[in-house]
Amino acid sequence: MKIGVLALQGAFEEHIVMLKKLGAETAEVRLSEQLDDLDGLIIPGGESTTIGKLMVDFDLLEPIREFGLAHAIWGTCAGAILLSKDAHREQPLLELMDITVERNAFGRQLDSFEAGLDVDFLKQATGAGDPFHAVFIRAPIIESVGADVETLISLPDGRIVAAQQGHLLATSFHPELTGDTRFHEYFLSLVGAG
């Protein structure tokens, strides 16, 4: 199984380390032809405006859209913004998932935080359903989800921080910044199912 990590800007290296721990073959993706032999793609955290602009400049928007029709894609933080159809701002988006997001929904860096999340749904794929320690950095929230989208995790106040639409996955936090590989395992299970 070969998983690409979009390497235009952001924390792509951290995802590669996690994938390697799980024995997956990995590749950095900067140009569209590098998508050709991949089974799945991760769009990492970073600045969504920077990554989006580079996607346009290097003609990646359409190829990733097409890739996403048949393959699993997971977006973390900026990646989740890029998967959405609306981020309330003029910026290039993949519009693959029927979700709207609010950027920097918790505030600025001073409001960044960590929290234990209830992830019972991970139990089946990973064998462990105990709370997931999640890192939120200038994080977005998933404001609303369409009919085909399943909400995976909400905060106690109801705000959605993880959602899935078929083989597409969006999380507003950063599983790549902790040692806990369960989300990466879950994503690999989506890749395998595709």
């Binding site: 924390a11 792509f12 890192v135 950095i137 950063h174």
Partner: peptide, 18 residues
């Protein structure tokens, strides 16, 4: 249960490659 230093370092990790 915030590890403040990880959150501080984390933003810099999001700036990488930029």
């Amino acid at each position: 249960q915030t590890d403040l230093f990880r959150v501080k370092k984390g933003l810099a990790q999001m700036l990488k490659g930029g």
